[in-house]
Write a protein that binds this DNA or RNA. Structure first.
Lengths: 337, 337
DNA sequence: TCGTTTCTTGGGAACGCTCCCAATTTCGGG
DNA sequence: CCCGAAATTGGGAGCGTTCCCAAGAAACGA
């Protein structure tokens, strides 16, 4: 059963002084006699006093809290980013409220409402694969609560974005595939609507172009990131008269699934099909052969997102230019391609 | 820049009525004329009114929020539990605040302070491997804020616990190993202080005893869950004059690491060393051979923990008996053992 | 010694909301 | 048409803080 909360008035009464003085002592305000301060601090400690943040926030209108909304928790990617973001935020005296949307648009909307209700000072968000209506984010604009996008961004809202050079990363991956002698390189991409997917595809095409490999739209397939469907697409590739000899996948789980399926067919990776993923998830060193993949700088993404957000929160400049930070990726060559 | 927040007074003034009426309309109180209510709701919508939860909570002294503190985010285990807990909590009208402690005692203490500061109505917690001082949890007792432990529990605090039948799970795993003809079954456990580890070890011993396999303490090693150290312990096992032919590991990441190392030595799993893990992490179907492991009922754990917590929050009974819910595990036999 | 500056303290408004109580309006039955 | 009950509304206290302002105490130079 919840007990009566100890308030500064309780302390003031017990000490026979005013709540103002208690408040001052508790907030390290200079204008308190040293002796008084000590008595107050001591009693507060003894009574297990805990400042009621609601009343504080009610006055301050700032919660020293930022929110982070991520689309899913299945890959290690987002949890890892959260860990980094949390560290950085704490460093600056901010708490982090976490929510995950289960790749579901409605849940994302609900999550942003929670953030609003919790009166976060700002929000980091990475969109679900379904999100293509942004009204729930416009609320933040209207209320003047800063947002920073990361990873899954959106162009329709003017807010800073932290992304990775997907184009370059894909380019490097495909170029590597070419350098190992692969001639027919396919690409299994995610939902066409996602910017990440668009950019990786563009990098893929560019690498082919630069190396004078004719573009073949048939070699590019899009899917909804539901791993169970990978088999369908892989079978399609294998059923082509001129089969691909390499496959650049939109992310690591997809690549890993592909490797499993290829091996189940009795074929070899990378000899029969070279496979490259994207992100360097933890699982990528577990598959056999170990996955060649494009590493994303997790730590930097998390930290940068928080930094940009706090920048916005702290400064009061109105005509603020939304910047996009593009972080470098790194090709990690292992055994799958 | 943060804009002025729209308040019920703004609405009241614009409509020439009192804030009381506005408040009533906005909280679905019956005593408001239908017409008035409509005007208010309409204007509120138009002005993008958002109820200030601080003032509400300040009055209510309840936040409709529960916290969850987990030791880490590296395995898929905790993120998955969070997803389930969040669903269940939302179902009951509660928000979930998430924090992860990085397997670090100080961070855990800080996290619980955050929960206190956010005035959560209750907290779910799974302890770090380092935690053996529980003062930060006693605060919750003193303040009458309910706690529910899950997975990594603690006996020193009287609070409901949701755990899995580790003993049974381990027993089944080892028994299976024996049934496949393994004679010298080793166990690589985690920190001796963790109850989970104790129980799994007990199940391991019991399975051996029941099958008349002499107990050999040398076959049991404890480590700090830092995967880089797995190699040391595995080498130790291999250096024994009478090498083990099977290894029951404390969790899946450990088992997977073992499999990798065994294969790197040119040995075969399960022929040279059968390996079994615990938890059925996502990665367990990625390793080769696929990992035999003891599945934990993630969904049930998350849901049960929330249920027990809300039970406590809602009821006002003082002399409440702390119950421990033990969920069943399930041995999933794959190829590693 | 006194006036003036500097410390230290207390009082009270304010934050945005809910909720109790009293005032006002509406309405139906006699 | 009047009266009491029911419906609707307004006023104001209070939730636990912070912060401004003023008052009182102490200190200090002349």
């Amino acid at each position: 059963m919840k007990k009566h909360q100890v308030t500064i008035i309780d302390i003031a009464n017990k000490l026979g002084i005013s709540k103002s003085t208690v408040s001052r002592a508790l907030t390290d305000h200079p204008n308190v006699h040293q002796q008084t301060r000590e008595r107050i601090l001591e009693l507060a400690d003894e009574l297990d006093y805990q400042r009621n943040m609601f009343s504080v926030n009610l006055i301050r209108k700032s919660t020293q809290t930022i929110g982070i909304v991520v689309p899913e928790f299945h890959r290690s990617f987002f949890p890892q980013i959260i860990v980094e973001a949390q560290k950085k935020a704490k460093e600056q005296g901010y708490n982090l409220i976490i929510a995950q949307s289960d790749e579901n648009y409605e849940t994302e909307v609900a999550n942003t409402k929670v953030m609003l209700a919790q009166q976060v000072d700002g929000m980091l968000i990475s969109l679900t694969k379904e999100t293509n209506n942004f009204d729930h984010l416009r609320q933040f604009e209207r209320k003047g609560i800063p947002i920073v996008f990361f990873n899954r961004v959106c162009d329709q809202i003017a807010a800073p974005k932290v992304i990775v050079d997907d184009y370059e990363g894909a380019y490097a991956a495909v170029e590597h595939l070419i350098s190992t002698g692969k001639k027919r390189i396919a690409h299994l991409s995610g939902p066409e609507t996602l910017t990440v997917c668009k950019n990786r595809k563009a990098g893929y095409f560019e690498a082919l172009r630069k190396n004078n490999i004719p573009k073949d739209e048939d070699l590019v397939l899009h899917y909804d990131l539901n791993l169970r469907k990978v088999e369908i697409y892989l079978n399609h590739f294998f059923s082509m008269e001129s089969k691909p000899d390499a496959l650049f996948c939109i992310n690591d789980p997809t690549a890993i699934e592909v490797i499993k399926l290829v091996k189940a067919k009795g074929l070899r990776v990378p000899e029969d099909l070279a496979v490259i993923g994207f992100s360097n998830d933890m699982a990528s060193t577990i598959v056999e052969p170990q996955l060649t993949t494009v590493e994303q700088p997790i730590k930097e993404i998390g930290e940068m997102a928080v930094t940009l957000l706090l920048d916005q929160i702290k400064r009061d400049i109105k005509d603020w230019k939304a910047q996009t930070v593009i972080l470098k990726t790194k090709l990690i060559i292992r055994d799958s391609g």
